[in-house]
Design a protein around this nucleic acid. Structure first.
Lengths: 156, 156
DNA sequence: CGTGAAATTAAGCCCCT
DNA sequence: AGGGGCTTAATTTCACG
């Protein structure tokens, strides 16, 4: 994982449709070398997958909310129960004013209400606090940091 | 935007490297027809871009936090001030216990501290409450809903 | 559907260890 | 000597009009 790899990742985040020849030129390598580097980044799991970024509003998911969930002890299947609700985009165990935080995209506020009801059906869920997003300034990919000095493997 | 389009979007979310021939087969269309549909989805902005999903830990961003920001009136350049901090992945205006919510990925907790300090430097920021994610159950793409009946354009 | 570009693989070379 | 990474080149597949 050197600077060239990081640059390649950044370029692919911006546009994963460009050719390896283009990528190679951008980092001063041949098409083949760029291809090989990207292949290894995928192999190592640094690049998890190539995907498309979809406009939530355009597919009818205009309502964004974060729900903080308070509850008792979590069963082992809490994660599955959350994953079973397709409108939940993220789920995290948190330290702070609650024990779980989930990101929800609903079609309407009525739909959001329905999803909250589903959350309460999960065993252990006692209380929720919902934060509705009124406007999204931006949502963007992970920023690739520049490591201080070394070129070695990054912790993780 | 019909069922075929939605299926195509779902397939591309899973793997945007597959060929149009494969996509076409999956939805019962020719390669060319699938290609044309995807092209239009891009044109309409339903598909914003093709990108790569990067493992945050593998690139040295193992600390995830959400920061709720309380403050006075927001200047027009609040959005720019937030966007200028690369560690901020999302920024939303919210209804609820604060006025802004941002998603932050830091390399270490020390780094997180630094970013919080940067937030306070933004004009209008009075108080922050930080939620640290201890474990992420999952993070996944927007779910494409199946509309009730019609095949018409979706609100948005 | 054909044409041209791009992905992908193979072979050979150089540098660093 | 050996390994890794690069370039070049050949082959196959795919994008796209």
């Amino acid at each position: 994982m050197d600077d060239i790899d990081r640059t390649l990742i950044g370029l692919l985040q911006q546009d994963a449709t460009q050719s390896y020849a283009t990528l190679g030129t951008a980092v001063g390598l041949s098409s083949g070398a760029a291809h090989e580097r990207v292949r290894k980044l995928r192999e190592r799991g640094v690049i998890r997958r190539t995907t498309v970024d979809v406009d939530p509003v355009a597919v009818g998911r205009g309502v964004l909310a974060y729900v903080m969930i308070d509850g008792t002890t979590w069963m082992g299947d809490t994660q599955q129960a959350l994953a079973a609700i397709p409108e939940i985009e993220e789920a995290h165990v948190i330290a702070g004013p609650a024990s779980l935080l989930v990101k929800v995209r609903a079609t309407t506020t009525q739909d959001l209400q329905l999803i909250l009801r589903k959350l309460f059906d999960i065993h252990g869920v006692a209380k929720t606090q919902t934060i509705v997003a009124l406007e999204t300034f931006f949502e963007r990919p992970v920023h690739i940091p520049t490591p201080p000095g070394a070129d070695g493997p990054i912790p993780g």
